[in-house]
């Protein structure tokens, strides 16, 4: 357990790892790959605008002679951009605001504690795989916020495209780093952009399961996450989360209401019973969240293939699932109180 001692020793009173503080910008440039291509484009491109000899072009317009002027082939520049929304919809400004608002929740409400954060690579792509729980799962924002806070690396959260259909929520979710879970999106993020992507292979089955089934991992889809990692040539980093199940336990589900409201599931949570339907829908119980990063898995297969052996993929997915399940049991064995950890 030598690797976990680093974070354990560095853990402060309020339960945070205290890495040597760097500015976010510095941390990024050290990684060598800057998040948004726009920034690069802005640095590379000269201050001239995209349409080159403007006087010529505009003169054409006024005489309605739209003759394309032969121009030297220069790379297009993007310096007219005004927002910092990247090609995935993530905005660093929105992230910054979200970080500021979410940090108290992270530190004082959930009192998040990490183990083995040093197993998350500081450079290059990696697919983070975690268990998913709670009616409105708190695990995704906690993992995304935690890694950004402690390692200064952005995390793109892959989630069901249902989010996109909800007005306002969908847009905010996208600006905060949410990406529709599509194999092609995951591949591009991991392979082309060399980013961290977070995925919950249980999908909707995780958060919709009832409290009675807590900490029993559902089926890990069809192992698509393993295939994506193989194709992108990146490691899979499993993360076990304990506490999310109790933050918003699902007592029962109403399929009729879900169907009526066109929601993936309609949970009735303990929070709703205790705090009323409105407050309960947005308030978590103040549970202690403990996360353990497990040893990353790398696959010795040729990356970039169209298809991989289905049996191998299913075996590997099952192994990740088993390791996560073991880690959950291990963490639960050590847990004395749901609230205090």
């Amino acid at each position: 357990m030598a690797s976990t001692t680093r974070s354990a020793s560095a853990t402060g009173r309020d339960g945070h790892v205290q890495p040597p503080r760097r500015t976010r910008q510095a941390a990024r440039s050290e990684q060598g790959d800057v998040v948004d291509a726009e920034v690069v484009a802005r640095q590379v491109g000269p201050s001239t605008a995209g349409g080159r000899p403007q006087s010529d072009r505009d003169a054409d317009v006024s005489t309605s002679l739209p003759v394309a002027v032969a121009r030297a082939d220069e790379p297009p520049s993007d310096d007219q951009r005004r927002s910092d929304v990247d090609e995935w919809g993530r905005s660093e400004r929105v992230r910054e605001l979200a970080r500021r608002l979410y940090d108290p929740v992270y530190r004082f409400w959930f009192r998040v504690e990490w183990e083995g954060l040093d197993r998350i690579p500081l450079t290059g792509g990696a697919l983070l795989v975690a268990n998913h729980a709670g009616a409105v799962p708190p695990d995704a924002p906690v993992i995304m916020h935690g890694i950004e806070r402690e390692l200064g690396r952005p995390v793109y959260g892959l989630a069901d495209s249902f989010f996109r259909t909800v007005p306002v929520v969908g847009t905010l979710w996208s600006r905060a780093g949410g990406v529709p879970a599509h194999p092609d999106n995951a591949y591009r993020l991991l392979h082309d952009r060399r980013q961290l992507a977070l995925v919950f292979p249980e999908g909707i089955k995780g958060p919709s399961k009832r409290y009675a089934d807590r900490y029993r991992l559902r089926r890990f889809g069809r192992g698509g996450f393993v295939e994506t990692a193989m194709r992108a040539g990146v490691p899979v980093v499993p993360i076990a989360v304990v506490g999310a199940e109790e933050a918003m336990p699902v007592l029962f589900r109403s399929n009729q209401l879900a169907h009526l409201l066109r929601l993936p599931y309609f949970p009735v949570t303990a929070n709703m019973v205790a705090l009323g339907p409105l407050l309960g829908a947005v308030t978590y119980f103040p549970v202690k969240l403990r996360l353990r990063v497990l040893e990353p898995v790398t696959y010795d297969v040729e990356p970039g293939l169209e298809r991989y052996s289905k049996s191998r993929v299913m075996d590997e997915a099952e192994q990740v699932r088993a390791r996560l399940q073991d880690a959950l049991h291990d963490l639960l064995r050590e847990r004395r109180s749901v609230i205090f950890g």
Binding site: G50, R57, T63, E74, P76, D78, Q80
Partner: peptide, 25 residues
């Protein structure tokens, strides 16, 4: 020669000119 944002910018500059001098012959 143009990015997506560059295409919008190209429209905007031509439009600025049109607003000042009109459509032209």
């Amino acid at each position: 020669r143009f990015t997506s944002a560059g295409a919008v910018g190209s429209f905007a500059r031509a439009n600025n000119l049109r607003r000042s001098v009109g459509q032209g012959p």
